[in-house]
Design a protein around this nucleic acid. Structure first.
Lengths: 123, 123
DNA sequence: CAGGATCCTATCCGATACTG
DNA sequence: CAGTATCGGATAGGATCCTG
């Protein structure tokens, strides 16, 4: 996108990157790095989880936000959702190939931050 | 999640122990993945930029949010800030070693997303 | 158990005006 | 140029209740 054509201002000499507001990647990034999205993706990195397992894994998240975040990530193609019409119902979420691909840099980011922080004990 | 003020949340809130009991990295992750933080970090990955260059690079950001985001990231030790007391004044921002380290997975994330999205044509 | 619907508050964030 | 201060609308997000 940093090189994509933008009718009307394509003539501008670019000394630096320009992140357009209408770039589709920007929405995706926003979803992935949303307040809870990153934790959902990291939580599912090792194995699929059910709704309540995710809720307990990501402490502090409300059911509303978890449901909303999951819906967005499924729509974006980062997660798959499997419903077993039992009683009570069971819904499992897991990473798609795309989600797994995206999860790597997120886990890396998280690791680098945690690796760096401990000595300072949250200044 | 964006530049939450330094006066830490006085209220003892639930801890987010996704992987650890107390996660000091949570605030850092929130800042880094804030709405504008990630774009600031990515914009500065190749070279330092001045305030107005950042504003033009990150299309859609307001001066208020840029200033707020920069303040947060400088405080977190991800960016350095250099003021030249000329007239008019010049303020330059760049990545610290920590910021550069954190910027890598972010750039990686961005690249993977853009590489995966359908070609950005005829919008 | 998984979530939708509703209400309501905290905060985000843009617009505007002002300063050094 | 590079901010700060303030106002107010938009939105995020929690709490609660309800359903299949």
């Amino acid at each position: 996108m940093a090189g994509s054509a933008q009718p009307g201002q394509a003539e501008a000499e670019k000394r630096y990157d320009v992140f357009h507001t209408d770039c589709p990647a920007r929405d995706m990034v926003d979803h992935v790095t949303s307040r809870w999205g990153i934790w959902v993706l990291i939580s599912l990195r090792s194995n699929p989880l059910r709704f309540y397992e995710l809720r307990e894994s990501i402490q502090g998240i409300s059911e509303k936000m978890l449901a909303q975040t999951l819906r967005t990530l499924v729509r974006d193609g980062l997660l798959w959702r499997e419903v077993e019409p039992t009683t009570p119902p069971q819904v499992t979420y897991g990473l798609t190939e795309f989600g797994r691909d995206i999860g790597e840099p997120l886990t890396d980011l998280f690791d680098r931050i945690t690796r760096r922080l401990p000595p300072y004990s949250a200044a």
